[in-house]
Amino acid sequence: MSQLDYLAPASAEDAAKALAAGGDTARPLSGGTDLLVQLRAGRLKPGLIVDLKKIPGAIGIREEAGGFVIGAATSGAALGEHAPLVRAWPGVVEATNLIGSTQIQGRASMAGNICNASPAADSVPALVAARATCVVVGPTGRRTVPVEEIPVGPGRTSLAPGEFVLEIRLPPRGFHAADAYLRSIPRTEMDIAVVGVAVNLTLGVDGVITDARIALGAVGPTVIVAREAAAVLVGTRAEDDVLARLDEAARAVCRPISDKRGTAEFRTKITGVLARRVATIAYARAKERI
């Protein structure tokens, strides 16, 4: 029988040491909503689980230098209850809150969502669109990494042995800016995204879009930053003809697979539909702030 040990270190440095010592079979635990499923299914047979929740700052949200710092093990439910965060980053919060049920929200964290490296993770497109970064702690110290550089393929991350995500940082929010996220699922809840689209916009006082960033989920091995599609929006007020061009530009960068959750053709079509819808929501939200 394989042996499994559980540690709950009280500092990030101790956690990194333990993870490094545990090698390939060590796994960090924050919310556990992916880890425990993989344990149970036998897909993962770790020798060591390092619970991050006792590390100071691992749970909680604080405002810092105009932005937000979110502890790795902070639950989705806690994000949804944090009014300043919801006001600044409604898209990031709504994306995170779409992960699983109320029960899952009680535990699941954005850091886990990022590091599980599913192409269909809901929070990741929203974080990428928001230009969020991760503070990664490892045996050799700390580094700051853009969220989109953490997952490198389905189930794979760029984290070195012993490294884990301690914090997620959302940048300071400019005026007249807002984000939004929508996904397509067969039911109304409890599903994995067949397509997810996040749009993050900044407007000028005249309502013209000055900055746009769009991230697409579940249409490639990792989140796709749709730069051409974002460029379509800049300099416009997201009018109907602009949205039609956005639809086309978003579809153009999709590289989906066909699987049990949807065909490549369907995923591509829906990406265009959602891009239009999400841009409309984000635009309306930003415009309200003028």
């Binding site: 067969p186 039911r187 109304t188 809840e189 409890m190 599903d191 994995i192 049990k260 959750r261």
Partner: peptide
């Protein structure tokens, strides 16, 4: 079978 769980064997949930 590719979907032997309630995640991908999609039975109706209350909000449906």
């Amino acid at each position: 079978m590719e979907n032997p769980g309630f995640l991908d064997y999609r039975m109706p949930v209350a909000s449906d």
